[in-house]
Nucleic acid binder design. Sequence first.
DNA 1: AGCTACATACCAACTGGTCGGTATGGATAA
DNA 2: TTATCCATACCGACCAGTTGGTATGTAGCT
Lengths: 216, 216
Amino acid sequence: MARDGAATRALIMDAAQKLILRHGFAATSVEAVLEQTGLTKGAFFHHFPSKNDLARALMERFAEQDETTLRSTLERAERLTKDPVQQVLVFVGLLEEMMEQSGNSNPGCLYATYSYEAQLFDDETHELIKKALLAWREELGAKIRQALEHRPPRIPVNAEELADGLTVVIEGAYVLSRAFKEPKLVLDQLRHYRNYLEMVFGEVRVEMDVPASVSS
Amino acid sequence: MARDGAATRALIMDAAQKLILRHGFAATSVEAVLEQTGLTKGAFFHHFPSKNDLARALMERFAEQDETTLRSTLERAERLTKDPVQQVLVFVGLLEEMMEQSGNSNPGCLYATYSYEAQLFDDETHELIKKALLAWREELGAKIRQALEHRPPRIPVNAEELADGLTVVIEGAYVLSRAFKEPKLVLDQLRHYRNYLEMVFGEVRVEMDVPASVSS
DNA sequence: AGCTACATACCAACTGGTCGGTATGGATAA
DNA sequence: TTATCCATACCGACCAGTTGGTATGTAGCT
């Protein structure tokens, strides 16, 4: 009966993450997690010195998974096509696929949840968030920069801003998706983000209208 | 000493909203609000039967102000130009202006904050959020539809999705803006949203290149 | 007087966290 | 093989502090 500690720890973390994504951190009591898992206080505080240690552990795991997703998906896109522009577009498309599949099971993002209760968490935890979000900015940004060098954009753009744009769309779409209870909204907005990239890259040809200078 | 009730009520609401935007609702204790205002429990519960009544009152006020901003800014844009396409673009531009001016003083949005602690609020409060967000979808959506009819888009788009896109960008940009502590990020992302609209409207001319995988 | 606008004192419930104890099972040694 | 030992895993009663909320009083205005 009293055996696999790692499994229990994971059980606590899974239950806690679900509750936190639904109700926020402050509104998720330790007892609520215990009720969900059938465990007791003893078990909880055996695995986590404090509730905030749980918070940090959750963020460590979440950020790690997230960065893994980022890199592996980027690599998949690189394997699927050699054109840097297409790699970026395929990358976003793959994310859409993944969103569509996992669907409602992942109804939120810990980064945003933690951000809205910022003062509850220590600096270390905030650094984890920053680091993970920076990974998207920099690694997707680098790939976008490659694409921009490979095919000059139709309007002047900044690679890191464009990379941030993806995270922005995802986070913002989650908010609306929850408020409206329309899961598909996230996919729609991701499609628009991809549209934007396509037009910036001139995947769809763009010509200036008025000053009539940038003709191809 | 015991004089203007309405002012005291507003004082409480202002202090509470600031704290809630910074720390979330659950993590904002009534006592913290009282400490901020120099009032006492008697005063608080004289004006609000419960903490949740404060939450609802705050959302009523916030949504009302928000819808007013939406409508008045839309009207300003309509007064500034007659071209529906330009009206949409000017509308977004005006929002950028307002964001830039109010700047850091408004570091968040109650809709998102409440969404991340959803179960704490009653249905009535959630309906207020939904109604306000729907106003953006429908009223900005209607204006965008006008623009689309006036100038057929270069790629097939849905007016309401595009309208949602603005809210999505704002909410998402707030999240990143907080995490990175980069207030200007919101403006950058709004600029990209406007870029997208410009290209969709063919404000910048767009021509299909290849078989063009732009789905609807 | 009576109503509004507060202050003060207080309470029951819940919070995160502690602590002494028990159960389990693997390593060790007889 | 089996008795001993001990670390790990877990239990559940308990604690102090904080929470939202109430009851009662009072000062000022009309």
